[in-house]
């Protein structure tokens, strides 16, 4: 995309063209100087719209729940943006992004914008990319922003980083609760949802989760445990009410500002780390192999090698 093209795209974006929004999402997702330009232009347009993260183990019905949430907000005339994140294969760099399957006809609703994203294996980069893609959608005028991802390790932390409220979704199927606890999913939850609540074991699961929550240190926000049957739209209004309540809590307690400040700090740190690393790498890449040889031969430790490399880099920077 040439500079003039980018300007034209921004112009189209501000007049509400979806193709332009999609393009700008690609630009920020791909990162680099062009992404910075775009964000610079978009930041004044940010509205502070609520950002909701939906995560949970595979197969609990997250996409179906997101579909139901989107329909709920559409009924209340809110424009909705959805970012659905799926893992990139570490072996091939490819990914199959299948979340649209569940959202079927929402695709053609002009008040809804859905974007699928692959994690692209970037350490910490996902949080940045996700947040910035949400920025684009917010600047585009979407009034409710939803990020959905499977919670199997790191990605749910990234989602927490990119959103204000995190809903962790589980289903009564065996082991989901345990899996969630093990995976640290409970740590990021502002709201817990047991979906597929029409299946056996749902009540038991709610009790298990509540017992687990009761053992946690007291905090101002007590994490509610809700039940939904997303495929039938049951419990969706209650879930949205809980999300609103959490939002009010965030605003009144000052947590929202806190969270956004913390998020900004993390962002700055990440950008700084990226930049520093890029510069260091550009300067030192040629020297690393020789040091590696010495370390491998037992002549140096990785620490002494790094110390020397860093000294060389810092000297140059001055």
């Amino acid at each position: 995309m040439l500079e003039t093209d980018l300007d034209r795209t921004l112009e189209a974006f501000f007049t509400g063209q979806r193709r332009a929004a999609a393009r700008l999402i690609s630009v920020v997702e791909n990162g680099g100087p062009r992404a910075e330009d775009v964000l610079h232009q978009l930041y004044p347009r940010l509205t502070g719209a609520p950002r909701l993260g939906i995560t949970g183990p595979p197969g609990v019905g997250k996409s179906t729940l997101v579909d139901a949430l989107v329909r709920y907000h559409r009924k209340h005339d809110r424009r909705v943006g959805v970012v659905a994140v799926d893992p990139t294969s570490p072996f091939t760099g490819g990914a199959v992004l299948g979340d649209r399957v569940r959202m079927g006809d929402l695709t053609t609703d002009p008040g809804v914008f859905i974007r699928s994203m692959a994690t692209r294996g970037s350490l910490g980069g996902l949080a940045r990319a996700t947040k910035e893609v949400v920025d684009v959608l917010e600047a585009f005028g979407q009034q409710m922003l939803i990020v959905e991802t499977v919670g199997v390790g790191q990605t749910e932390m990234d989602v927490a980083q990119a959103t204000d409220s995190v809903v962790v979704v589980l289903s009564p199927e065996s082991g989901d609760a345990i899996q969630a606890m093990k995976a640290g999913l409970m740590e990021v939850a502002d709201i817990l949802v047991v979906n597929k609540a029409d299946r056996p074991g749902a009540g038991q699961m709610v009790r298990t989760l509540e017992a687990d929550l009761a053992m946690r240190p007291h905090s101002e926000w007590s994490v509610p445990v809700l039940v939904t049957v997303a495929s039938k739209g049951e419990g969706i209004a209650e879930l949205c009410a809980a999300v609103d309540e959490h939002r009010v809590h965030l605003e009144q307690s000052g947590d929202l500002a806190d969270r956004r400040r913390r998020r900004a700090q993390t962002e700055i740190t990440a950008v700084l780390r990226d930049r520093l690393w890029q510069r260091a790498h550009a300067r030192l890449a040629d020297e690393i192999p020789a040091w590696a040889e010495r370390v491998a031969a037992g002549q140096e430790t990785p620490y002494t090698a790094a110390r020397s490399l860093m000294a060389a880099f810092l000297e140059d920077s001055e």
Binding site: T88, S89, T92, G93, G94, A95, V96, L97, G98, R100, S116, A118
Partner: peptide, 8 residues
């Protein structure tokens, strides 16, 4: 996907 593409 196996060829490294992102498939929607």
């Amino acid at each position: 996907r196996d060829a490294g593409m992102e498939v929607i």
